[in-house]
Design a protein around this nucleic acid. Structure first.
Length: 587
RNA sequence: GGUCCCGUGGUGAAGUCAGGAGUUCACGCCGGCCUGUCAAGCCGGAGGUCGCGGGUUCAAAUCCCGUCGGGACCGCCA
């Protein structure tokens, strides 16, 4: 981010922000307000007080005996002057000036804070930071993050507005829908025993807005999912949710790209290159992931053909054999580490992990003896391996092979998220169906059941449903899934076909989705959309590994808020009014 | 639901493997000195249920069991 001088917005209490004072202000009388950061006392008649507000700190020279302590809230009026020769501090933007002849007004005294209000608190236990979040947020890092977030929001809104999208707010109290993520339920007081749900996304409403002829809808939408929390997941999160009519995939991708690139530019000052595209199949084949991190290489290499005639049992039965190469990894990885990687590969579903350390005349590996004289040079050739390199191979079903190597690739080489460059990628042509239901054996929706199948694959519904592609797409940044979307089905015939493949009968479809699909009978335009997570985008642009750092008041991994102590036990009176009774835990 | 890591004055750590008096270091806090410092300096001081409960032991921060809290990940997140 570019360091610029903060803009002053004078109020009745202050003329300048602390961090805004510069050489040009020398000689003027100013009033600043803020918190006492550090004070350096030199006897009764000289003290330096660093006064801090969100814009930065400024040194105030106080010649009277004033008792001001850490985090006291002060209003200081004085004269800006150049610091004496040899006492300038280049580490501070305000370091060439100071405020002298200070008149100090204590607006509020303060108890010493439980942790320092500066970068040292980065190391403080996060639970303590969250318990006193209002103090944590006073820190430069958190102020920066909040402001960056605001900038991103504004840029996204502006980008959507200038593309003639209409912001429409959809309800927070919605009907419960059985599919998808677990929902938060809200009991109805008027109808005890009935519940609203909090929306996992405005999906249903935004598609109905297309039926309503809104044409281009967007919303900075709060979404709620009652699933286990992670570094990149909170119960509640914000999405840029959008939907548009009479479009194909390119139209949607263009609109969203513009918003994302504008947001990135607002945050970093630099416009990223146009976002590249990759098919889901390529992403899996090359990076072993549907959210490939393109910042580093170590791509998966195809070895199936090399081992077509192999005698090695572990390879001969496999439909896909692939490898990754770690440059110079032979000496770096000891037996212990390789065993650990093998364990990980196994727990991720692979039958095993073969490692080959390249030597001058072959491989150092427990399986070296199973490889033929022809195979050894071919493997080295395909992998581009030299002496001292380490090759890791998985042989399994195609999806397992890709997935496991992709996981290992990330494990070994993925840089921290704050390390550039930013690599955005559209992953397109997701499969329509992913996996099969354990009980019924029916395919399951990859995205959701209203996703448009790829027109070239309609013929494969009966013959090979799992290979049917869809017009569904994800936006990925540095290995994080930012969001996903699709072109939707708007014709009943096709919808029925998809339901059929999913094993959903007409009756069942009517029962589950009728309230949503029947309105389509009144004329649903072809439409499609997208939603991307603003928290994740901001986190990456802020260089934070954890979205809690860019959320003002986040929840802990267990879903609690240490500051407010929520969730709290229900008040019996309210419970009675709602017709609720808590059962003892089932254990 | 599962795997792994962590919990020691207000804060951060060392001490735990290999049991021996609440021991140590830094920051902060309180008091004193100090007129150009800037994570000021010097001197002095206060501050602890070693997360909690149980067990083993002559003796537990340390070993064992349980539990609570925090974190990372898997499952889950159409």
């Amino acid at each position: 981010m570019t360091e610029s001088t903060p803009t002053n917005h004078p109020t009745s209490m202050r003329t300048h922000l602390c961090g805004a004072l510069r050489d040009a202000d020398v000689g003027s009388t100013v009033s600043v307000c803020g918190w006492v950061g550090r004070r350096r006392e030199h006897g009764e008649h000289l003290a330096f007080v660093d006064l801090r507000d969100h814009s930065g700190i400024v040194q105030c020279v106080i010649n009277d005996d004033v008792d001001v302590r850490s985090e006291y809230v002060l209003r200081i009026t004085g004269t800006v002057r150049e610091r004496p020769e040899g006492t300038m501090n280049d580490a501070l933007p305000t370091g060439r000036v100071e405020i002298g002849d200070c008149e100090v007004e204590i607006l509020r005294s303060a108890t010493p804070p439980p942790f320092p209000i500066d970068a040292r608190a980065d190391d403080v236990d996060e639970n303590i930071r969250l318990k006193h979040r209002y103090l944590d947020l006073r820190r430069e890092r958190m102020q920066k993050n909040l402001r960056l977030r605001s900038k991103v929001n504004t840029a996204v809104r502006y980008a959507m507005d200038t593309q003639d999208f209409v912001e429409v707010e959809t309800p927070m109290l919605v009907p419960s829908t059985p599919e998808g993520a677990r929902e938060f339920l809200v009991p109805s007081r008027k109808e005890p025993g009935s519940f609203y749900a909090l929306p996992q996304s405005p999906q249903l409403f935004k598609q109905l807005l297309m039926v309503a002829g809104v044409d281009r809808y967007y919303q900075m939408a709060r979404c709620l999912r009652d699933e286990d929390l992670r570094a990149d997941r909170q119960y509640e999160f914000m999405q840029l949710d959008m939907e548009m009519s009479f479009v194909n995939q390119d139209d949607v991708l263009d609109v969203v790209s513009l918003a994302v690139l504008a947001a990135a530019e607002a945050a970093t000052g630099e416009r990223p290159a146009p976002i590249e595209r990759m098919t889901w199949h390529d992403a899996m084949n090359r990076f072993g992931s549907d959210k490939p991190d393109l910042r580093f290489g170590m791509e998966l290499q195809e070895l199936t053909a090399v081992f077509a005639q192999t005698e090695f049992k572990a390879f001969s039965g496999a439909t896909a054999i692939k490898g990754i190469k770690i440059d110079g990894g032979a000496s770096e990885f000891g037996r212990n580490q390789l065993d650990k990687l093998t364990e990980k590969a196994k727990s991720a579903g692979a039958k095993g992990l073969v490692w080959l350390k390249c030597t001058d005349d072959g491989f150092d590996s427990p399986v070296a003896k199973f490889l033929s004289d022809e195979e050894v040079p071919e493997v080295k050739d395909v992998m581009g391996a030299d002496t001292g390199d380490l090759i890791l191979i998985v042989a399994d079903a195609w999806d397992t092979t890709c997935q496991v190597l992709g996981m290992i690739r990330n494990e070994i080489a993925r840089p921290p998220v704050h390390e550039g460059p930013y690599r955005y990628v559209w992953v397109v042509e997701f499969p329509l169906f992913v996996g099969r239901d354990k009980e019924t054996g029916q395919p399951k929706s990859g995205h959701h059941p209203f996703t448009m199948p790829h027109p070239d694959d309609i013929g494969k519904f009966e013959t090979d449903p799992m290979s049917v592609r869809s017009i569904a797409y994800d936006l990925v940044l540095n290995g994080w899934e930012l969001g996903s979307g699709s072109i939707r089905i708007h014709e009943p015939e096709l919808q029925r076909k998809v339901f059929q493949a999913l094993g959903i009968s007409d009756d069942e479809a009517e029962k589950k989705f009728g309230f949503f699909l029947n309105p389509f009978e009144y004329g649903a335009p072809p439409h499609g959309g997208f939603a991307f997570g603003l928290d994740r985008l901001v986190a990456i642009l802020a260089g934070e590994e954890n979205i809690r750092e860019i959320i003002a008041f986040p929840k802990t991994q267990s879903g609690a808020d240490p500051m407010t102590d929520s969730p709290i036990v229900g008040d019996p009176k309210s419970m009675a009014e709602l017709g609720l009774k808590v059962l003892p835990p089932t254990t």
